[in-house]
């Protein structure tokens, strides 16, 4: 446990039952995934302009000059409006590879968030009140994801023929995944007449205020973990 956190769950990028080591400093997968078409010497492409500049400024780019680089995905864009977390969330929402639709849904939800907040801003009376209202959908989205992240999870562990729900700490990577999954599920729980982006926007705004289904789910999970604290030692014994 000294060098990093071992991940038990199945990461969607690698085949089943593979054990990976997550480097704690960078959050990158350093272990070699099976069936990769690239030899281990190949590094991942750096596609964000800000990050490239940083590499050049710090001189790290010099070291990477002759390192072979993997091909970039077609979702790796150097757009100034690109955000990795939003891209990941879009992929969660996507069904059967229909990225076009997924992107549209996320964009509509962001638009809805902006409309709601701007409406509030327009009706606010004083200048300070207006300035206090956050209208940036990206900030609200990040706050919502942040507020929905759990710190513990329940893992079934078999001891003496009985499966116990054992509370174990969660990695940052997985907590992001679970938070976004909850957000997506909250958006899909709705009446037939309400559209997904609309509901998602409401959930995002609620979660950013530390309310709503996502935050409730997180608190429920934490409560369950607290209740099962007696099983915590099954994690290692």
């Amino acid at each position: 446990m000294a060098t990093g956190v071992r991940v038990l769950f199945n990461d969607f990028r690698v085949p089943l039952r593979s054990w990976l080591t997550v480097n704690s400093a960078w959050g990158q997968v350093t272990g070699r995934a099976r069936y990769s078409q690239y030899p281990p010497a190949y590094i991942k492409p750096v596609y964000l302009p800000a990050k490239l500049e940083e590499l050049e400024r710090s001189g790290d780019a010099k070291q990477l000059e002759y390192t072979p680089v993997r091909a970039a995905y077609n979702t790796h864009t150097s757009s100034v409006f690109h955000d990795p977390l939003v891209r990941k969330f879009t992929n969660h929402i996507m069904k059967t590879g229909n990225k076009c639709l997924a992107r549209e849904l996320v964009e509509k939800a962001f638009q809805e968030v902006k409309r709601v907040q701007l409406q509030k801003r327009n009706t606010a009376e004083t200048e300070e009140e207006k300035e206090a209202i956050v209208c940036d959908p990206l900030k609200i989205f990040k706050q919502a994801v942040e507020n929905g992240r759990p710190v513990l999870q329940l893992v079934p562990i078999k001891r003496g023929g009985v499966k116990y729900q054992v509370p174990v700490p969660i990695t940052d990577h997985r907590s992001y995944f679970i938070s976004m999954r909850w957000l997506k599920e909250a958006g899909r729980e709705k009446e037939r007449t309400i559209h997904f982006p609309e509901k998602l926007a409401r959930e995002l705004l609620a979660a950013a205020r530390n309310e709503g289904r996502v935050v409730k789910k997180k608190q429920d999970l934490h409560r369950q973990c607290e209740a099962n604290r007696a099983y915590a030692h099954y994690r290692w014994s």
Partner: peptide
Amino acid sequence: CGAALGQRCVSAEAAQ
């Protein structure tokens, strides 16, 4: 321990 996704975007944002 570093947050994989969140921190990356924050650093890109703060650049300019």
